[in-house]
Design a binder for these strands. Structure first.
Lengths: 224, 224
DNA sequence: CTTTGTTTATACTGCTTGGTAGCAATTATG
DNA sequence: CATAATTGCTACCAAGCAGTATAAACAAAG
């Protein structure tokens, strides 16, 4: 099974002569752009009406193309869903990793993590919401890959909490369990935030930071 | 509007002669039971596969009946969804109100509220999860009624936080906004808890209590 | 201007499924 | 036991939609 997959990849690489590389460069970018546009509109409809209730005809219409156009860039409807869910969790995970790469104390890092991830979640609400709502519509193997990414997210967050626990900055009995509450709080933003609603994105982000800080704060006093 | 509703109720009561009351009593109970059973199985499938992906034929099969049987107890598929969502939020709201009726300080009441609501959410995970996930599949007017119940929940919770703020038990700048984070934390339980998973229901409930207490705790010290 | 390859649309199929009309079975009533 | 009423089922339809076979339009190359 693996051998076959590898050989397909090899074949793909090998039947692209060097002289054609430059020419196909632009073409590839355009293809990528089309795929991204399809994904954007699909995520819009999935977010509003749900995966099952959305027809590919409606997505095509929004793009002023036809259904077979979509099928020439994606294998089927399920692949679209997978890429949307993947985007939703991967964006959050990348934001987390970038935030963790900033030097500082655990408290400082945690603040940056919450701020950046919350911002990313708000900016990419469609993708994150679809990911949270439609996991059951994924193929089992796709669902597993998504869950793995989620698990990585929670694990890295737990490691940060553990670091703060060791330095005495945080009061968390079980970092891995607290991590789930924190990541739940962040996920909740996607399900609840409404652009142009009662509260601005900045207010929500600041609130999230403050809530998380309280959740990990040692009983005695506060840390800046 | 109210007058009309009252009159319909009156009419219903009036065209039931007294002598038939006793006879129809049992019949009504049986009808109610059948409706409840249909709802149970439907919520099971909606929870597992989602609303749109669930066929009424599969629900009927599970109950060892046929589709027209369901249609003689519910107007259509949408009515089933509405009743499930309604159950999900109403159970939580009732739990909240009962908890609030227990005398005590704001801190004591908050603890009871979180404990009871969390328990109810875990016990009725199907209903709550479907409510959280499938709001978009409801008819607009149904969605509005559900949102009203949710709003009542958040408002009552905010009132409790405000009460604690006044007595100095809680440190919450904006009770109505904190209430949303607390109710989000509770909702998150439904989306994340898995029976037979890494953590027991009791652990989750205790964690929820402790998280919420930290979220509202004054900076200075802790309250029992 | 032809030829060859690529991109997109037209037009269709097969299947699923919400919903219903009408019939059968069962139960209650006199 | 006959009659009426209730309850459930068999058999069906119409619509919607994922996915495709095939043709047209377009572009690139010679």
């Amino acid at each position: 099974m693996h051998k076959l997959a590898d050989m397909t990849d090899m074949a793909e690489l090998m039947d692209k002569p060097k002289k054609k590389r430059a020419a196909s460069q632009l073409k590839d970018e355009i293809t990528a752009y089309k795929r991204r546009r399809i994904l954007e509109e699909a995520s819009h409809f999935f977010f509003l009406n749900g995966y099952e209730a959305t027809t590919l005809d409606s997505v095509a219409e929004q793009l002023n193309v036809t259904k077979p156009f979509i099928y020439s860039y994606y294998k089927n409807k399920g692949e679209l869903l997978y890429e949307i869910c993947q985007t939703g969790i991967q964006l959050s995970l990348t934001a987390l990793e970038e935030a963790l790469s900033v030097e500082g104390t655990a408290s400082e890092q945690l603040k940056i993590v919450v701020e950046r991830v919350a911002r990313i979640i708000i900016e990419n609400q469609r993708y994150v919401t679809v990911y949270l709502r439609e996991e059951k519509s994924l193929l089992p193997e796709d669902a597993r890959r998504i869950r793995d990414l989620r698990h990585t997210f929670d694990t890295k967050l737990a490691a940060l909490l553990e670091k703060g626990r060791k330095t005495g900055e945080f009061d968390v009995a079980a970092p891995s369990r607290t991590a789930i509450w924190v990541s739940g709080l962040l996920s909740w933003i996607a399900l609840w935030y409404h652009e142009g609603g009662r509260w601005s994105a900045t207010e929500v982000v600041m609130d999230a930071i403050s809530m998380v800080q309280k959740m990990v704060q040692p009983a005695g006093g506060k840390h800046a």
